[in-house]
Amino acid sequence: MLDDRQTRTEKLAGEIADAILEGTLEPGSRLDEHMLAGRYGTSRTPVREALRQLATTGLIELRPRRGAIVAKVTSEQLEMLFIAMGELEATCARLSAMSMTPIERRRLGAHYDQMGEMVAQDDVPAYTAANTALHAMFYAGAHNPVLSEMTAGLRRRLAPFRRAQFRAPGRLARSHAEHGAVVRAVLAGDAASAHAAMLHHVSLVEDAFEQLAGAPAGTAPEAARMKAG
């Protein structure tokens, strides 16, 4: 039951995040729990939990006596977050190449192959979930709990922006190809190449989001449009 509730909350948080990134919910607007519950056909409890979850991403702010407000994320903030994300993920990939066990490497390779089938079927929801799991394998494979926790926390903060990239045409196939470079380097134990490939991948994730954000007004948040400019 707890897993079902958590899944519903995550799904709702994703839907609200998408509305913010698409510009339907504009920066500065108040997110009323009653309104959101009616809009998404649910009760206030999962709405409240979803808003708390989104507050950790920086997409919304929880203010005393005002409730939840859609935050205005600046281009500078996004750039700093993506730079930090790239450095942390690249370090995880480098350490994974050095530290992953044979079992972890086999699981990584198998998971990557399964993602190829999702690309062929253009299954965005499945690929999005598998993408998160793939990166988690690199975090765990680094065998450094402190680094893993830091990286996973920053990823949660950037999750709505990273998920939005998959709406860009052809992004699924490009993402899979970028992952392939990282996976091959890790499986070969090539730490330097794994680091470089992951750093390159995260920079292209940012580029994909910028291109999507550069779409006509109303399809992306104002902060993202500013960054794309």
Rank of each mutant, 00 (worst) to 15 (best):
A188C: 13
L78G: 02
R174N: 11
T151H: 03
E206V: 06
A181P: 07
A133W: 02
M150K: 09
E87G: 06
A208M: 14
L81Y: 13
R171S: 04
D3Y: 04
L108P: 02
L31H: 02
P145T: 08
G109N: 05
S148K: 11
D32T: 09
P221H: 09
T24Q: 13
E222A: 15
R8Y: 06
V182D: 11
I103Q: 07
H143A: 00
G153P: 02
T219D: 07
F209P: 03
I16R: 06
C92F: 03
E10V: 05
F166C: 07
R184I: 10
R171W: 00
D190L: 07
A55L: 08
E61N: 12
V186K: 00
R44N: 03
E15Y: 07
L2F: 04
G170Q: 04
Q6F: 03
F138M: 14
Q114N: 08
M1G: 14
H179E: 10
Y127P: 01
Y139K: 04
R44H: 13
R65D: 08
I83G: 06
D207K: 15
T101M: 04
T132S: 10
M198H: 03
G170F: 06
P221C: 07
P169C: 09
F209G: 06
E87K: 13
L51M: 11
R225I: 01
S148L: 08
P102G: 01
R184D: 15
M100K: 01
S203A: 14
G180A: 12
L95E: 10
M226T: 08
E33I: 15
R156V: 03
D113M: 11
G153A: 05
R48C: 04
A126I: 01
R52H: 06
A90Y: 05
D122W: 00
Y139V: 06
A192N: 14
A130M: 02
T132I: 06
L134G: 11
G141N: 00
A228W: 00
V146C: 05
L154G: 05
R39Q: 14
I20Y: 10
T132W: 07
P27D: 06
G170T: 03
R174Q: 09
T9N: 03
G214I: 01
Q211W: 06
V205D: 15
H135L: 07
Q6D: 12
D18C: 07
M137F: 02
A55S: 14
A185V: 04
R174A: 13
G141V: 00
M198W: 00
L134S: 06
L78K: 00
L59G: 04
V146R: 13
P27K: 09
S99Y: 02
K11D: 08
L88H: 04
R184K: 15
A196F: 14
H143L: 01
I69Y: 01
E87F: 06
Q165K: 07
T101K: 01
